[in-house]
């Protein structure tokens, strides 16, 4: 081996170590579970309910995140204003919040005795111990992932493209829909995938804020935790299903967004 070649070999070895460390536990879930156990675990009461609830709640959270988060991220990326860094920091704060703290914080804010509890009650909305509460918890923890990515994606869009759209007779709104969003699409999809992944795996905030009631607030991770205490094989099997479903969903999001985001190569300007 020549002296010049050792560094690429070293980086490759580091990658091999990281890859095996990160994938071994996931592989173990599947190796430890027989296909029969997988099917059996799905047949158990509550298993399919939990998966279905996870899917519905995370999709509802994603819808809220995309509808509110996309224009919000566009504003943050394209406008210069006093206190912009502060706003960005505040928006990203839930990223570093421990999930249990997020749950407590939500209770303190919109729980029955929280600072906005009265307002929520007057509006006739039930959050605590309700599916709506799950959606709220998922939105709270997952939104920063999307906002962060979307803001970076919009920030990377060539500003002269937006200017060109305006001189061609398009309003700011049409420019956003027809130029900014398509140009930022790979980044937006990546943010969406991250947020969805985070929402599907959410545990702490949901448990603290919405509780763990079968069919109402018990998402797949909560169902796994419940089984963990009584039946490890069943917990393992449900885990395997959740991993497979999550992986399939994320992969399909990336495939739908075209080859650019799958290879991770930046979109052509």
């Amino acid at each position: 081996m020549t002296r010049a070649r050792w560094f690429p070999v070293f980086t490759l070895a580091a990658l091999a170590l990281a890859l095996s460390f990160l994938t071994l536990p996931i592989v173990a879930i599947f190796v430890d579970t027989s296909p029969g156990e997988l099917v059996e675990s799905l047949a158990e009461p509550g298993a399919l309910d939990a998966l279905w609830l996870s899917l519905r709640a995370s999709l509802a959270a994603l819808a809220i995140i995309v509808v509110v988060g996309t224009p919000a991220a566009y504003f943050l990326a394209t406008r210069a204003f006093r206190g912009r860094s502060l706003v960005i920091t505040l928006v990203e704060l839930p990223l570093v919040l421990p999930p249990a703290v997020a749950g407590i914080a939500l209770l303190a804010a919109v729980g029955p005795s929280g600072i906005l509890g009265g307002v929520v009650e007057d509006a006739g909305v039930q959050l605590v111990l309700q599916t709506a509460g799950v959606v709220l918890a998922l939105t709270f923890v997952a939104a920063p992932f999307f906002l962060r990515q979307a803001q970076a994606a919009f920030g990377a869009v060539d500003r002269t493209l937006l200017d060109a759209s305006r001189t061609l007779g398009s309003s700011e709104a049409r420019t956003f829909v027809q130029v900014a969003v398509p140009a930022a699409r790979p980044g937006l999809v990546a943010g969406l995938a991250l947020a969805w992944g985070r929402a599907l795996g959410e545990f702490g905030a949901t448990l603290m804020f919405a509780g763990s009631f079968r069919g109402i607030t018990q998402t797949a991770p909560l169902a796994i935790y419940e089984r963990f205490g009584t039946d490890f094989t069943s917990a393992l099997a449900l885990s395997a299903v959740l991993v497979a479903v999550s992986a399939a969903l994320l992969l399909s999001v990336k495939l739908l967004s075209g080859p650019t985001s799958l290879t991770g190569a930046p979109a052509r300007g």
Binding site: L161, D163, A164, V179, A183, G269
Partner: peptide
């Protein structure tokens, strides 16, 4: 307006 780098919409 013809921009310096043409600013054609890439998509």
């Amino acid at each position: 307006y013809v921009f310096q780098d043409y600013a054609l919409f890439p998509h």
